[in-house]
């Protein structure tokens, strides 16, 4: 299953037949792997990786380090689940080190993110402190270096 997932992780919804050919296994086996991965919540969904800095729309991102008060029995799970509900929140992680939670948010402009932090995150029950850092420029995202133009320096025919 791992090889199948590695292919779709990088390339998205590749036809089952093609995956089967590439890995030298039966199409049914590929189908089963994908189905099981979906059922078990391993494969969540297919999406595209877009560098909005080059794209049409303006999108900005911020990393928000959140200090929170853990609850007896559930730790940070409730506050993390609460924060996760906001559409602007891109991802939420429980961290080791300085912050308890790291929240990545995306918005159309600075004000949208500021409003989210000031009006929703900071006052949320259990949140003690937030420190917001805006992304100024993206160099690499999801394993992809985005600052370089792809180049091919090979000659067309070599021995």
């Amino acid at each position: 299953m791992r090889q199948v997932l590695e292919i779709v992780e990088r390339e998205g919804p590749v036809p089952v037949e093609e995956i089967a050919t590439r890995l030298g296994i039966a199409a049914a086996e590929v189908e089963q792997s994908l189905r099981e991965a979906q059922e078990q919540g391993i494969l969540l969904h297919y999406s595209a990786l877009i560098n909005w800095e080059k794209g049409e729309a303006e999108k900005i991102y911020a990393f928000i380090a959140v200090q929170a008060s853990p609850e007896h029995g559930s730790g940070f799970d409730k506050i993390a689940a609460y924060i996760s509900r906001f559409d602007e929140v891109h991802s939420v992680y429980l961290m080791s080190g300085m912050a308890d939670l790291m929240v990545v948010v995306e918005g159309e402009d600075f004000r949208e993110i500021a409003r989210l932090v000031a009006e929703k995150l900071a006052p949320a029950p259990g949140v003690r402190d937030t420190a917001t850092s805006f992304v100024l420029k993206t160099y690499k995202m999801e394993g992809e270096i985005v600052t370089e133009e792809p180049g091919n320096h090979r000659l067309a025919v070599t021995p």
Binding site: R154, L155, T158
Partner: peptide, 8 residues
């Protein structure tokens, strides 16, 4: 080109 004798 499928004529290349080196890695891409």
């Amino acid at each position: 080109s499928l004529g290349v004798g080196e890695p891409d």
